[in-house]
Design a binder for these strands. Sequence first.
DNA 1: GTCTATAAGTAGATAGAC
DNA 2: GTCTATCTACTTATAGAC
Lengths: 191, 191
Amino acid sequence: MPNPDTREQLLDVAQGLVQERGFNAFSFKDLAREVGIRTPSVHYHFETKGDLGEALIRRYREQLEDELRALEGRRTARSRLRALIEMYRSTEQKRLACLCGSLASDIDTLPEALRPHVGGYLDRTEEWIAEQIQAGTSAGEFEPAASAADLAVLLMSGLQGALFLGRVRAPSPGPSMLSRVERAFWKLLEG
Amino acid sequence: MPNPDTREQLLDVAQGLVQERGFNAFSFKDLAREVGIRTPSVHYHFETKGDLGEALIRRYREQLEDELRALEGRRTARSRLRALIEMYRSTEQKRLACLCGSLASDIDTLPEALRPHVGGYLDRTEEWIAEQIQAGTSAGEFEPAASAADLAVLLMSGLQGALFLGRVRAPSPGPSMLSRVERAFWKLLEG
DNA sequence: GTCTATAAGTAGATAGAC
DNA sequence: GTCTATCTACTTATAGAC
């Protein structure tokens, strides 16, 4: 039976590598070296690289659902949306892409079985954002200047785009790309 | 002396492959096969893959400058911005990423010499967008809800993000991701 | 300019010992 | 569970003939 510790370690390292370099730019050798085992031992835990990718997305998706559940207690939609944006900010500060954003950019080169899961994650996030905008509007928190669906796509694209583009430049003193996206987004939602 | 035709053909094919698959997911072999020559002949035109990448970005940048120059004749900032968005729409319809967006997503794996050029292209586009927003505001075309710099970052991130995310899903009947980003963006600019 | 031949290195993956 | 040994295929790149 696979040792859960080694398996989790492999997933942790692999996730970091995908978020930093992309799915095609890391190898089982990189993975093995960082965890302190040999390449073929990785295949014991994940038969193929595609299987590893599937486990990676599954875990990432479960973490998302946990985090969204933890936000249910918050009273305002504004506070829930802000918390989601904070998750992206922490990724930005590590100079990483979103796992599924990174996989999205490699979509045409991924094992077929992986692709629907990437879309599933992204759709779920966008859908959740749209729900929050709806809820906040019904509650009188927002006076959105566009439809909830359009605003959700704008925020989602803006956050993912900002993560990619921000990594190209050296860190600079002013507000980050993500902060600028966020600031403009709130104007659109609250006038 | 390199035959300009073969060289251009190689650049055309390579650009398509980068926009479709990313810099690390195509090989000189792919390139050679599509152009109808052998792998080592590609090295006659581009010594290394890094050199090919540099030529690719240079040409893409020159095309951008040509297109922006062609927009100078348009009377309104609104019309100039719309034309830029149309360029992204044509990329979206081909289900491709922006060349430099794709390279941005691979940034940590690129040959060092390439990286500044990727940033140069993205910065130039963002800067141009900010200039148009400024000009349109001065001319009374827009009443922007946020600073020109923030709005430029939002549009740039939104366009690039929409190209990446849109490719994950099958084409659907409703408005595309890019159209939704665009619609929300105009609301922010014009109220 | 393009070719054949070849190099040195890496990829994902498997067989079978311990 | 991890190892050594090995496989096939592929990568970027070079040498040198035509």
